[in-house]
Write a protein that binds this DNA or RNA. Structure first.
Lengths: 226, 226
DNA sequence: TCAAAAGTGTTTCCCTTACACCCATGC
DNA sequence: GCATGGGTGTAAGGGAAACACTTTTGA
């Protein structure tokens, strides 16, 4: 392999796109940005950018997460590579898509001043630029599967949460209701919850207990699944 | 976005690599090729190549499958994108890896004359070039998961097979033995088998029944899982 | 008749599911 | 005291797992 011979292959780009999930007021939301440049000026899309040749895919994803919400700590997982020839109108760009789960209260430190952005409830996501709707469809399938097999939903919640909130999260993402007693039985049997006292909001009704995770057991399940 | 501005991003390559699985004599095998060029001359690797800017990822994968075994029909599924900066010694190459399941008897039409190749029993796979061992590890995890959730193992077997062969395939891939009666109960309950008569080999012992699939029910399970 | 592989049922256990009422709190 | 949401147990059904012997065939 010599340099001349391979030059012809190096006329394409690789981008990384991020589907960032958040959970707020009982709704699963994704982070979208308004595009300012043609041919998609005015359209909404997920954050994405071409990567440089000295940047790994993961680094690019974390950098973009930092640009989007001012934080590189949240969970990121590779979703899929999208490689249709015509997926980018200005040239050949292959996209490696990641998705991220963040807590909208504690993980969001800042938004970019130079881009209009908003969180959109997933069922209300409009037509997006590029093939980003296709990415979202795939990301939703993955998220539902992961939610069933791994303790991943916790990453969308604050450090302390009630079982009611956890159940609402599951119901919202899975798209159907769950039996309260069965849900609690299943979760508590996993033994990954630590009691943290009681909530002190001024909602009507009995004060729910707050829980957080046993980080070690949590880590085990993340690797091996339930 | 103008052309000048993005030129700096277009100095990397994208390759597609194929982990091709076959099953022969009770062993799960992968297809490997000997590399003839430095810096990996003499080393073994999976088939892979840089893609051109007018070639989709899937097309490249099928083309490579054709080059490897002379057939573009078998099952292919995207595995992962590998993007470490140093993964290719000669430049920045991001790899999108696919894996394929073929029947070594009926799907292999021809091998390339210009490349030395061989099928290697997975536990005996040596150190491979690039990050191909890492790819194999990930491909094995995926294959095991798929085998449990989808009727995917059938793709490694001939069109007609015995339940003993099917069970041996599962045991080989999952790495542990299965109870014969429970295995048969589970498989027959799926209702995807069609009886095809009896084997006519001259092995000792009772002649096993041959089965094939009901393609429609098979397709359903492929989409939705068990 | 023996060696080799195919084929076949039942029981136990646990997990899943369905289902309804009392408890604590603020107003 | 009532409205609001939190919290709890039990019974039935279904799938998973454990377990051993008989059948067919060729040599």
């Amino acid at each position: 392999m010599n340099t001349d011979k391979i030059t012809s292959f190096f006329n394409l780009g690789v981008s990384v796109t991020l589907v960032i999930y958040g959970f707020e007021e009982g709704q699963l939301k994704v982070f979208t940005q308004k595009i300012s440049k043609n041919p998609y000026a005015g359209a909404w899309s997920f954050p994405g950018k071409l990567i440089k040749s000295d940047e790994s895919l993961e680094d690019a994803a974390y950098t973009m997460l930092d640009e989007a919400i001012g934080n590189t700590k949240p969970y990121i997982e590779q979703l899929n590579a999208f490689g249709k020839i015509t997926r980018h109108p200005l040239g050949r760009v292959i996209d490696v898509t990641f998705y991220s789960l963040i807590n909208m209260k504690s993980d969001v430190k800042s938004y970019r001043a130079d881009k209009e952005s908003k969180w959109v409830h997933v069922p209300k996501v409009p037509e997006l630029a590029y093939d980003h709707n296709e990415m979202l469809n795939l990301a939703m399938l993955r998220l539902r599967r992961r939610l069933i097999n791994r303790p991943i939903g916790f990453k969308l919640l604050p450090a302390e949460f009630t079982l009611g909130e956890l159940q609402a999260l599951y119901e919202e993402i899975l798209g159907h209701e769950l039996d309260k007693r069965n849900f609690r039985k299943k979760v508590t049997k996993l033994n990954i919850l630590l009691t943290k006292g009681h909530e002190t909001t001024d909602n009507p009704g009995r004060k729910p207990r707050l829980f957080s995770f046993d980080p070690e057991k949590y880590a085990n399940y993340m690797e091996q699944g339930f």
